[in-house]
Design a protein around this nucleic acid. Structure first.
Lengths: 202, 202, 202, 202
DNA sequence: TATGAATGAGCATTCATTCAT
DNA sequence: CATGAATGAATGCTCATTCAT
């Protein structure tokens, strides 16, 4: 207590695991999973490749660990959502919280989005898909009108992709997030009201 | 009569280039660009790797050639759109045609969508981005309300992603496409009307 | 006769063989034998690789044919030399004629000089070595003093290497050749006189 | 006693880098750079190709490292020579020391001599050329008579080539070296005295 | 906690060569 | 005379992974 080993030390030594995750995610998001080699990660950290293997059993496990850490809040959110009544308010709340949760996990989601082909064959692929379906099932009844289902999927995609597609636009990120959120909320709301289908069109 | 000399045999030899493109796209879309090796492509075609190099200078060039062939109609569409007045009707027409054009190019777009990290560093990455911006500039004024811009981007993403995300849903593909189209059209229409910004909604 | 097929045609069509040799030697001398591919030669000639195989059975045979053509005068020279009495005058004459002969065969000799490692394993390697020994045996008795033998070898090397080593020097090529010739003649003359081994050796 | 713990065993592992260089130089000199594959080097060492890449980044770097190690004494010699007065004694001393230095670096120089076409495009090509010019500038004034310049170049070439050209001659190597040295010294001495030009001879 | 040394499998690419047309 | 299409063997190189220290 009160002594020097108060976190600084924890941050110097003993946080290699964390640093690996940080750099790995950065590189994965930037260049893709396959094009990022362990050599590159190790070099950036100024350790040897073998050191990575002290902390993680495989390359995939590095990714898995990142995913588990960063996607936890979102999993919690889904768990919470499942227990709520599927009212419009719940749905809007889910979308709002989801949008918030994505901020912290942005690089991970950018990675997931841009490396789907790779991710699909990885262990996290299934997990991720499950979660997406989890959210979808909260946002809309699987038996709902097709158009409304599309609206919900669209809402989710809008939130996922929105950020980094809008990345090269001017303007402050929070404003963009709000814009994305508004569009997503709209979509979910419309879907909930069941405006879908040709009736609306006639 | 009418079909000279069978054609099938004649085509057996002499269409290798096309067959390479077909198999390559199939594998690229299925497993990703990096994870698909030229050995695999060659084996599926029952030729040697060296044969691929007779027809294409590099692995990337195989992809480029596929892209150039399949994305041509979409490029044409954009060119056409640029010359039209930016009325609501034009926008809806663009969306409708775009949706149609995507059917033929579906596997390619699936590939582009799922391999963005890879594609970004390839020659076609820039080209693709340019086209997307081309469409966006037809659908919405770059100075428009942020929310409306998001709506347009969302419309495009909905069309891109819609198909294969909905792939595992029951129901006939054309019906799904119509549903996607409807949502996209809605989004573009709303964007055009400038309902963006929360004030308009309250 | 008197008609159009008077040599022009011979030069247009029908001289592909010659053109292959010319380009091949140029590239071999410039980049080395191994680093020059048949593809490159074919491209420069604007024919297909297969066309090369119509004219020559193998890559090596292209080189052999060049060698046989260009080195003929030198072979003749050696034959002539063998039948002469081994007087100083003969030796000086050989050196003089050799120096002259090298002008026409310069690119070939440059190639031989700069690709000895490669050439050694090729068929022409033995042939070339034989000729060199042939000249040496004219210039000096194999039982002569070691120093004088070195002088003769040095004379030959001076002539071989002289040209392209002096290539990057200013001055007209013929002047350089004369200089090289003078040094070579000196060496042979000294060797002949048996000055070998300085006072220190006597 | 005096030799701790044998040393041989300790060196078995841990000197792979050196062993690679040794075998590589041997093969490069014997077969040429291009015709020597990394597979071959690896096989001779009974390690995998990948092991070579642990110690050297590229094939070229193996050669560069050999060159850097073996040509160091010669570089030192040139540096030394540059600071001396350009008297006849200095020149003769340079030639003598150069001849000595070449003994240790013989296989490397044989390689350089026999693979000029290849070496020219490699990084060491320029370096080597620079050194040769360095020596030349010590041995003779660049404005000297052309014939005398040739004498100096000839002296250098004689030393380079002398050894392995005389390789297939009987007799002990040191005697041959002395013979080569004598001829080279003669040439440099004559060049220094400015006997060049036929006038001087008549 | 880490490293030094190495492996085995794989990859994109190139090459000389062949042969039916 | 020449081409179009293909092959088999090789090459330099990279990667994820292992393990003794």
């Amino acid at each position: 207590m009160g002594d020097t080993m108060d976190g600084t030390r924890q941050r110097r030594r003993g946080n290699t695991r964390q640093r690996i995750q940080d750099i790995a995610l950065e590189l994965f998001a930037e260049q893709g999973y396959e094009k990022t080699s362990l050599r590159e990660i190790a070099e950036r950290l100024d350790v040897t490749k073998a050191a990575l293997y002290y902390h993680f059993k495989t390359k995939e496990e590095i990714l898995v660990s990142i995913f588990d850490d960063l996607a936890k809040p979102i999993e919690d959110l889904i768990e919470w959502g499942k227990d709520q009544p599927h009212t419009l308010e719940t749905k809007q709340e889910i979308v709002r919280r989801y949008s918030e949760a994505l901020v912290a996990a942005a690089p991970l989601y950018r990675f997931m989005q841009e490396n789907q082909a790779t991710v699909r064959e990885l262990r996290i692929g299934e997990t991720f898909k499950h979660r997406m379906l989890g959210i979808r099932d909260i946002l809309i009844d699987p038996t709902a009108d097709l158009v409304d289902q599309v609206r919900c999927v669209s809402a989710m995609f809008t939130m996922h992709a929105g950020m980094f597609v809008l990345q090269d636009l001017e303007g402050d990120p929070e404003a963009k997030r709000q814009a994305v959120l508004e569009v997503a909320t709209d979509l979910v709301t419309q879907a909930h009201r069941g405006t879908g289908g040709s009736a609306a069109r006639s």
